[in-house]
């Protein structure tokens, strides 16, 4: 039975690891400026955890093979050196790994979430609601209009609760259902939720952030590749959660300028 356990566990370990290593299923291509460092941290973690996984599982398998169903009459023997070297080894090795991961990872995290955005960022407001995202550009005056929850209305498509009748800054605001951004330009999103928690997740952008009702949460990134990618909600928000998505369209700066001009003209 010990040998059978060893064989089954070895097969499980080898197959699982091989699928990770050959990247049968893997992250989509990164399109963000900060993404390569996240991917690098993920691969580093994957390699060290992979070694730990394989060594632990295979020692379990080897010991089960060697010491299972023994009928050789020899007495049991203690682990060489007892528990102390093992404890010291775990503290030193895992501790070193933790220090290394934290040192690199904390800087990386701080670079994305704790650093102020570039002052030249393109600022866009994002409003999440059951079950859609809307994006607002401030228009030619550069000032977004004030939002009034009591004016928010689905039927009149006033998703942000703007008051163009009284508020001049709101009149030129551009509200669209697709996040359109120029490539290679820092983007600063301000996330607000209209009703419940939602989340902004674009796997290709390696960015994720919750929307929290009552909070305006900044999120900044730079896309370095053009294309159209899905924005999905990752925070359970009700029955339509699975269907809550929008697109981010990354375009060259000149095309973006044209797009913006068109939108302004439509106002």
């Amino acid at each position: 039975m010990g040998k059978l356990f060893a064989v089954v566990l070895t097969i499980i370990t080898v197959v699982s690891t091989a699928i990770f290593a050959t990247r049968v299923w893997w992250l989509p291509t990164d399109i963000s400026l900060h993404g390569p460092r996240i991917d690098h941290q993920l691969v580093e973690t994957m390699v060290s955890c992979g070694v730990l996984f394989v060594v632990s599982q295979l020692s379990l398998a080897a010991f089960a093979w060697r010491y299972g169903d023994r009928r050789d009459g020899r007495p049991v023997k203690a682990f060489p050196g007892g528990a102390t070297p093992m404890v010291v080894m775990a503290v030193v090795l895992v501790g070193a790994e933790i220090l290394a991961l934290t040192f690199v990872g904390a800087k990386l995290w701080a670079g994305i979430y704790q650093t102020p955005p570039d002052p030249n960022s393109l600022a866009i407001d994002v409003q999440a609601e059951q079950f859609a995202f809307y994006f607002r550009y401030p228009g030619p005056d550069g000032k977004p209009g004030a939002t009034h929850p009591e004016l928010m209305n689905e039927a009149t498509e006033n998703y942000f609760g703007l008051d163009p009748a009284h508020d001049t800054t709101a009149r030129d605001d551009i509200v669209v259902p697709t996040l359109t951004i120029p490539v290679n330009r820092p983007i600063l999103l301000t996330l607000r939720a209209k009703d419940v928690n939602h989340a902004f997740y674009v796997p290709e952008l390696r960015i994720q952030q919750d929307f929290v009702p009552g909070l305006a949460i900044p999120l900044h990134f730079t896309a370095v590749q053009t294309g159209k990618f899905e924005i999905v909600c990752t925070q359970l928000c009700g029955l339509g959660h699975y269907n809550m998505r929008a697109y981010v369209e990354v375009m060259p700066q000149d095309r973006f300028d044209e797009w913006l001009k068109e939108k302004v003209a439509q106002q």
Partner: peptide, 8 residues
């Protein structure tokens, strides 16, 4: 456990 990989 790492915020930087949890992001994804």
């Amino acid at each position: 456990a790492q915020p930087s990989t949890d992001v994804y």
